[in-house]
C-alpha cells in the first residue's frame, strides 16, 4: 500500500497546488526580484559599461567600442591566466588536503565527529582578512617556519619550481597559493563531508570482502560515490579563488597580481570603467564556460 499512498499523496499535492497556483510565485517574487535587479541587471550594465567611452569627469557614452576587449586581453592576459592557474592549483590542493579530513570526519571520527566538524566550521566564521594576516606573520622570515623550510631543503625545491624567488617564503607565488588553499578549504571540506557521510560503510566492507585492496576500494567505490561532493567542493573553491585578490595582495609580490586586483584598481583608482568592466565581463564569461561544462555532468539541482 505504501506506493499507492505515496502516489496519491503526490497527486493530491499536485492537485492542491494547482488550485493555489499563485502561492509559490508569491513566495518567489521578492527574492527573485532582488536577485534580478541586483544580480542580473548589473551584468547587463556591466556589459554596457564595457562598451562605453569617456572619462569620469565628462561622463561615458555608449559607442559599442568592442576594441576595449582586445586591449583588456592583450594587456592583462598574464594576470588572467595567473588567476586561473593559482585558483586551479589551490583547488587541487584543497581537494587533496580536504578529502582525507572530510573522510575522517564522516567515517572515522566516531564520537569526535562533532568536535572536529566544529573546528573546521568555526574558523570559517572568523574574519578572512585577519586569518590571512596571520599567515603573513607565520611565513615571515622572523619565524621558525621559514627556518625549518630552509633547513629541510623545502625552499630549494620551491625555488627550483619557481614558486619562491629566494630563501623567504612570504611574498611569493607559493605563499599566495597556500593562502588561497587555506582560505577556501572549508568550502571544499563541507560538501565532501556531506556526501561522504551518506556513504554506507557496509559498501566499503562489501568491496574488501570482494577482494578489493584499500586503494581499489577507494578508486572503485568511495571516489565515484563522493563525486557530487567533489564537483560542488571544487566549484565552491575555484570560483571565489579565481576572483580573489586579498591573498595575492597580502601574501604575494608585484609578480603575483591576480585579475581581481586589476579590476579593483582599474575601477576604483585608475577610474577606467570601460576597461575594468571589460575585464570583469571576460572573467565572468570564462568562469561561466568552465562551470557550465563542469556542471553539465552534475546538474544544478544536485549542487543546490
Amino acid at each position: 500500500m505504501a506506493d499507492a499512498a505515496v502516489l496519491s499523496t503526490g497527486s493530491s499535492v499536485a492537485e492542491g497546488r494547482r488550485r493555489r497556483n499563485w502561492v509559490p510565485y508569491a513566495l518567489l517574487l521578492p527574492g527573485l526580484l532582488w536577485l534580478f535587479v541586483f544580480f542580473v541587471v548589473p551584468m547587463i550594465t556591466l556589459a554596457s559599461q564595457s562598451l562605453q567611452e569617456g572619462n569620469v569627469d565628462d561622463g561615458f557614452v555608449f559607442t559599442g567600442n568592442v576594441a576595449v576587449y582586445g586591449q583588456a586581453l592583450t594587456t592583462y592576459w598574464p594576470q588572467m591566466l595567473r588567476s586561473l592557474l593559482y585558483a586551479g592549483t589551490a583547488t587541487v590542493l584543497a581537494l587533496v588536503l580536504g578529502y582525507p579530513l572530510a573522510y575522517f570526519i564522516a567515517q572515522k571520527a566516531g564520537r569526535w565527529k562533532n568536535v572536529v566538524l566544529v573546528l573546521v566550521i568555526a574558523p570559517f566564521f572568523t574574519s578572512f582578512l585577519i586569518r590571512t594576516l596571520a599567515w603573513k606573520t607565520i611565513l615571515s622570515d622572523n619565524w621558525v617556519v621559514t627556518d625549518w623550510a630552509n633547513k629541510l631543503g623545502v625552499t630549494s625545491v620551491l625555488q627550483a619550481l619557481g614558486l619562491t624567488a629566494n630563501d623567504s617564503l612570504l611574498f611569493s607565488p607559493f605563499a599566495v597559493v597556500m593562502g588561497l588553499t587555506y582560505n577556501f578549504l572549508p568550502f571544499m571540506i563541507l560538501p565532501l563531508y556531506a556526501t561522504l557521510e551518506r556513504l554506507d560503510p557496509r559498501l566499503l566492507e562489501a568491496a574488501s570482502d570482494l577482494y578489493a585492496s584499500p586503494w581499489q576500494t577507494f578508486r572503485k567505490v568511495t571516489w565515484p560515490l563522493s563525486l557530487p561532493g567533489v564537483v560542488a567542493g571544487t566549484l565552491l573553491t575555484f570560483i571565489p579563488a579565481s576572483g580573489d585578490f586579498i591573498n595575492a595582495r597580502l601574501l604575494g609580490n608585484t609578480q603575483t597580481t591576480m585579475i581581481g586586483a586589476v579590476i579593483d584598481s582599474q575601477f576604483l583608482r585608475v577610474l577606467d570603467y570601460p576597461l575594468a568592466a571589460a575585464l570583469s565581463f571576460v572573467l565572468l564569461v570564462i568562469i561561466l564556460v568552465l562551470v557550465a561544462s563542469y556542471v553539465r555532468k552534475a546538474g544544478t539541482e544536485e549542487l543546490l
Binding site: 572573467l283 565572468l284 562551470v291 543546490l304
Partner: peptide, 28 residues
Amino acid sequence: SATNLLIFMPMATPEVVMGSSLLTLFLM
C-alpha cells in the same frame, strides 16, 4: 529550473565580478 539557475548564479560568480557589476548599476 530558471529559478534554480538564478539562485545558483551568484554562487558561481566571482565576488569581484558581482561587486564591479553592481558598481556599474549604481553609477548608471
